[in-house]
């Protein structure tokens, strides 16, 4: 489990965290589970009763099994779904969204705020100038359907690195969407190479119905965590101030915050 070669601190704010450091810090996080500090592998808020106990078991077990940070399966081009489905919100009524949509998102910017060295914002063009990652993965909806698509985007870790790296007390990244949705993921998934901010689907621009201009791909969690129509991202040490305090609209509603199963 703990095959970490780099057990240093997870970047010291405000010194920018190198990408290598960001990525190699992951085994160290995985190692925490066996050394007794499982904090990062527990749900941010534990629900009551037997359901909460099962949440803890599910999240800590899957995190333990994934302590070497495996990639979600990547498929072949021939596996791509013929008509990638859209689900949920496909055209936010929000005025700002409609304006950006009509302008082709040229004036849209993604603010990156919170516990980063240099809070700022990125235009879509700037995000596209980052080294990109393209991955053919299965979108797994918690409803039961799944579809394979080719996503192109910028690794979240690279964006955070450019924003000055995250401070040592940072625990979660919160995503706000232009349709009012919000979700959050913890550092274990933040630093994963397949966690990307996607602007392309199947070789084209990300369609509106699939979350244009930018959506989160967090491949080892269910569809509801893969938030669309991104508006801003915020790095935090606590989810208490997010929505009703559970860290996501779906979890505020009653779904488990951790969408790994």
């Amino acid at each position: 489990m703990s095959k970490s070669t780099d057990r240093g601190p997870r970047g010291v704010w405000p010194r920018p965290m190198s990408r290598r450091h960001l990525l190699t810090s992951v085994p160290a996080l995985g190692g925490l589970l066996v050394t007794g500090c499982a904090e990062t592998h527990l749900p941010p808020t534990v629900r009551g009763g037997l359901v909460g106990a099962a949440d803890v078991l599910t999240m800590s077990t899957t995190r333990w099994l994934m302590s070497d940070q495996p990639l979600a399966r990547e498929y072949e081009r021939s596996d791509i779904a013929p008509n990638f489905p859209t689900w949920g919100q496909t055209n936010p009524e929000d005025e700002d969204y409609q304006r950006h949509l009509s302008e082709g998102f040229v004036n849209w910017r993604l603010p990156v705020t919170g516990l980063v060295g240099r809070p700022g914002s990125f235009s879509l063009d700037e995000l596209k100038r980052f080294p990109s990652r393209t991955q053919i993965t299965a979108h797994v909806c918690e409803q039961g359907w799944s579809a394979i698509g080719e996503w192109t985007g910028v690794p979240l870790a690279a964006v955070l690195e450019t924003a000055g790296g995250v401070s040592p007390e940072a625990k979660y990244v919160v995503f706000n969407a232009m349709d009012g949705w919000y979700e959050s993921i913890d550092m274990f998934d933040v630093v994963h190479p397949q966690t990307i901010l996607a602007y392309g689907l199947n070789g084209d621009e990300l369609p509106r119905g699939n979350g244009a201009p930018l959506r989160l791909r967090v491949e080892r969690q269910c569809g509801y965590k893969n938030i669309k129509f991104l508006k801003s991202i915020d790095v935090v040490d606590s989810l208490a101030g997010v929505g009703r305090g559970t860290g996501g609209l779906s979890s505020d509603y009653g779904f488990h915050w951790y969408g790994g199963v």
Binding site: T62, L65, M66, P70, L71, A72, R73, A138, V140, G144, E219, R220, Q221, C222, G259, G260, V261
Partner: peptide, 10 residues
Amino acid sequence: QAPAFAAAWP
């Protein structure tokens, strides 16, 4: 069917 288990055990 679970994305996390499928990633851990392809």
